[in-house]
Every structure is written in structure tokens, then in C-alpha cells.
Nucleic acid binder design. Sequence first.
DNA 1: CCAAAAAGTAAGTGACCGATCACTATCCAC
DNA 2: GTGGATAGTGATCGGTCACTTACTTTTTGG
Lengths: 211, 211
Amino acid sequence: MSAEERRDQVVKAAVAEFAVRGLEGTSTGDIAKRVGVSQPYLFRLFPTKRDLFIAAVDHSAAQVRDVFTKAADGKYGAEAMAAMGEAYQDLLLADDELLGMQLQQFAACHDPEVQAAVRGVMQGIWHHVENLTGAPVENRVDFFAKGMLCNMIAAMGRADGGDPMWQPVLDVLRDEVKPPRCEPYDETAEVRAGSPRESGYAAYVERSLTK
Amino acid sequence: MSAEERRDQVVKAAVAEFAVRGLEGTSTGDIAKRVGVSQPYLFRLFPTKRDLFIAAVDHSAAQVRDVFTKAADGKYGAEAMAAMGEAYQDLLLADDELLGMQLQQFAACHDPEVQAAVRGVMQGIWHHVENLTGAPVENRVDFFAKGMLCNMIAAMGRADGGDPMWQPVLDVLRDEVKPPRCEPYDETAEVRAGSPRESGYAAYVERSLTK
DNA sequence: CCAAAAAGTAAGTGACCGATCACTATCCAC
DNA sequence: GTGGATAGTGATCGGTCACTTACTTTTTGG
């Protein structure tokens, strides 16, 4: 198997492991065992454990961006954001790993290199949402804030094992995230100067692909 | 020094250490060194490292509740929630440890015992806010969601070292968290059946004190 | 066919970590 | 003062972990 294929496998396994136990709680041996290779071989594919963690962060962020892109396909403005909110909640329910990485990547931000990576990744998602929806900053803040609350509630226990007291909260989130704010915003408003929006969505995707 | 005083010292040191490196990333030796006692002595005060972590979670949650209580003193409804939002943001700016513990406690939720503790603590804060403000669930969801977003942004880098791109986001948060929703809610609305509100704020404080 | 490059591993290494145990020092009631 | 409770420590143990080295196997291009 080529090194590149192995690297992909390793990153996926790393996401699965890091999402549960975090950067410091996961051993490289656990990841190697999941892939089915020897533990030392990981260090030929990635120089350090931290680099592997950052690759896992990048991978799961790319997944989120893809889901947003697909959800918003052909839509714009409030409609696009509604579809994205729904898609994100479905994704959280379907995929534990994504939630775990969200939690763990912020917890690992005490490491400057990880912090820089997380910052870049979150900027990417932020601009991606901006480009996909064209929504003003207030709506995007709301969108992201609700997403973070979803993460927190999911961390405390998924719907089954968890406490039913959060159910009304989740109901509110479902109702409110889908149309992120009740009052519609002005989709014809001009983009403010210096906004990354001006670079365009296509340009952004291209940039993130070539990187 | 009495064991009880030492325990308090240790918990405070544990908050400082755990907030940065998390449950798995912090060694008991680091905590002991910060307190100025030997590492084995920690295990006479707390049976395991995890128990100490949970004590740290409880401690920082009590701090948040205290800040909310003080901020809401003499106020109710929207006014109380506005004061609490402001107090929370000030607290986040003034106290790195609180933010760190917020991040780390959710990341450590893969451990069932930690998860149970975090769930209890967050329920406490949730009901506390409910009792202090009497605000309906939509407003509290908004309040908590914005708080989580604050945590995330702070994790990616505080105002100084960080990226200025989040400044407009913070501005929105400042404007919106203070009056949590622009439209005022009906403060005379009857409390829904089974709501913890019926137990009353004073009763809640008493319960949390005797615990 | 063969040599070089690439894929992959077994066996370690030194450091660290949570927890235990056996021990000492200090205080206080009688 | 003495005996018991309590505060506190040094030494250490079994185990783990990230990472290295030195080696073997497989693939591949000429």
C-alpha cells in the first residue's frame, strides 16, 4: 500500500481515537492498532503525535465544510443557512467523531501549534459559511453559537443515555437554528469593505483544495 | 494545617493546572508542586486524580454561580440576565482558569464519572439562571449558546495574541448577550408545570450550600 | 534479474506518571 | 510526658508512552 493511502487511513483512525480521549489521552499505539500497522510506522508517516492530531483536526474540518457545501448547494441566504443548520445537527447525531474532535481541538489549544491550526480551521469554516450564505455577521454568530451549544449538550450525553432535561433546549435549537433568526435579513445588502466574501466562494474552495 | 484547608488549596491549584492541560495532560506532580506539598500526599486528600478533577469542576462551577448570583442581586428578568451576561464576559476576560475548565470539563466527558459530574454541574447552572432570571427557555438557550461561543473564541487566542477577525463577532456578542434577545419577553408568564422554578431560588441556594 | 527505493516491523530507551507503602514529625488530650 | 491521632514525606513500583534504531520484506524501474 502506498504511503499516501496509509496516511489517509491513519488520519481517519486518528480522528476516531482523538475524538474520544483527546490529544494527551490517546496513545499512538491505540491509533496504530486501529489501522493495523506497527506503532513505530506512524512516525514515518507523521513526524510527531501532535502533527497527526493537527491532520485529524484538518480532516474533520474538511468534512464539516463538505457537508455545508452540499447542504447549501443551489441555495443562498437564509435558505442556505437553514439547510446547513439542519445538516449540521444531522451530522452531529450520525457521527460521534465529529463532535469529539470539536471538543478536543479546543481543549488542546494550550499547545501553540495546535492553537494556530484550530484558528486556521475555524476561520476557514467561518468564511465558508459567509461565502455560502452571504448572511450578515449577526446571523453567523447565532449560527455558530447554537452549534457550540449543540456540542456541549451532546458531550454531556447523547439523547439516549443522557438526561431528558435538555430536550426542550434541543427543541429550541432545532426550531431556531434552521431559520437562524426569525426576522429575515436583507440579502441585497452590500458586502462590507474588506470582507472575505469579495474573494468569492469558488476561489475559496480552490484555495482550500490546493492547500 | 488542617486537611480541610489543604484540600481547598489543592483544589485551587488543581483548577489552575487542569484548566491548561486538561485531565489527562496534567500530572499530579505538577499540582503538588504548585501547592507545595509532596505528590503522594494528594492521594491522601483525594482518592484518585479523577476525583480531584471533579472537585476542580465543582469549584469552578460554584464560582460561576456566585458571579451570577452577585450580578443578578436585586434584579429579575431581562435586567438580571443582562447583568449576568456582562459579568460572565468580564469574568472570562479576567480569569483564564475558568475558561480553561469549561473547555476541559467537556473534553473529559468520555469518562462516565466525569460526565455525570459535568452534567450535574451544568444542570445546576442552568436552573440557577432560570431561578435568577425567570426567563423563558428560548432566552436561556441564547444565553448559554453565546457563552459557549465566547469560550471557543477565547480558546483560539485571547484578544492580545489572537486574530482580530473575531472582533466583530465579539462585538455582536457584547451587544446581544447583554440584552439576551432584543424583543422583551413576558415576565408575568406563568411558570410551566414541573419547572424547577417552582422550587424557588432561595431553596436552590440552600440545597447547593448544604451539598 | 537485480538493485535501489519504499513499506513495514521488532526491540528497545529514557522519561514520566499514578498510586502504594513504610516511615517521620507535630500536635493535643489526659 | 506519653500515647494516639493527624499532617506530611522519601523511596519506589509497575506500567505506559513517544520516539529511535536497526533491521527485514516487498515493490518497481531499467
